[in-house]
């Protein structure tokens, strides 16, 4: 049972990251290489906000992470991404690489590269057969992830803004001509993506630890998105599950050192068999 619990929680962490990557890709054909950094910095903000409030209420750190996501999302889109439409594809990618490295330096400067574990009620809640335990944190992770994906589904399927979002992703010009403020919608995409990343960072920080090395979860999330297909939210979940399984099994059965290379080995395999991912569309290969 232990392994099932670990895999489920790892899947949640990666699925949230992959979902953010997919949303950003669909919205503006940008692949965000700074997603892991955003997640970990989100986790750090959550931790610090909790520390500042004295660790009594959960609302304060949550508000901190939300405010961080909104400010980062608006800033990244309005100050950088908005100005890069029409430039060669590599420009946007390299800007996200730059953002990632700036965030990494923020961890070094602001948090002095401290290795932190977010401690929100890790007391074992449920004991299962075989001595495995699930903490409240673990249960909260799963519930929050499921809620996030359900919310995302309902948002895209049934709300007017969600429909406008999908339209903007397909054809920003036409959306604008139909009265949709494209800048608002695309900023919103960044905010949602960073919010998901922050949540994932908090989950990861609760389960393992936050540090400059843990930004590699971004690469696992990116791999999950690619394995599932860059333009498919369903694929993000499937990809996250595959990456989580592969990583867990390698650590357990082969060699823990290899765990960082696992996502990429997986990626190479998927790329050589089905490069557009499990649920992706083939045409997307030529778009970026």
């Amino acid at each position: 049972m232990e392994f099932a619990a670990t895999i489920v929680i790892l899947t949640c962490t990666y699925a949230l990251l992959a979902a953010g990557t997919v949303i950003l890709y669909k919205a503006g054909r940008v692949v965000n290489f700074a997603h892991g950094e955003l997640a970990i910095v989100g986790g750090y903000v959550f931790y610090s906000a909790g520390l500042m409030s004295g660790g009594t209420s959960l609302w304060f750190p949550v508000a901190g992470a939300v405010v961080f996501s909104i400010i980062m999302g608006m800033f990244i889109y309005m100050a950088m991404m908005r100005r890069l439409v029409g430039e060669p594809f590599y420009v946007a990618i390299l800007v996200t690489v730059g953002i990632g490295i700036v965030l990494k330096s923020a961890i070094l400067v602001i948090w002095r590269a401290e290795r932190l574990t977010i401690d929100v009620g890790v007391t074992p809640a449920i004991r299962m057969a075989g001595g495995a335990t699930l903490s409240y944190m673990d249960i909260a992770s799963v519930v929050l992830t499921v809620a996030f994906f359900a919310g995302l589904y309902l948002f895209f399927r049934f709300t007017r803004l969600g429909v406008q979002f999908r339209g903007t992703a397909e054809n920003a010009l036409l959306a604008s001509q139909r009265g949709v403020d494209v800048n608002f919608v695309l900023s919103l995409a960044w905010v949602i993506a960073i919010l998901a990343a922050s949540l994932s960072g908090v989950l990861y920080g609760g389960r393992a630890f936050l540090s400059t090395e843990s930004v590699t979860i971004g690469l696992a999330g990116l791999t999950a998105a690619l394995v599932g297909g860059l333009d498919s939210l369903r694929g993000a979940v499937a990809g996250a599950f595959i990456v989580a399984c592969a990583q867990y099994l390698t650590v357990r059965l082969v060699d823990p050192v290899l765990s960082e290379a696992v996502p990429f080995l997986l990626l190479v395999i998927v790329m050589s068999i089905r490069p557009w991912g499990l649920f992706g569309t083939q045409e997307e290969l030529d778009r970026v």
Binding site: L84, L94, G98, I101
Partner: peptide
């Protein structure tokens, strides 16, 4: 502070990338 200097050095690389690209 050691990590501050290192952090600023790393961050400067990122800022250079972003500013030059923009």
């Amino acid at each position: 502070y050691g990590s501050t200097v290192f952090g600023v050095q790393v961050g400067a690389v990122g800022i250079c990338i972003i500013l030059f690209l923009l």
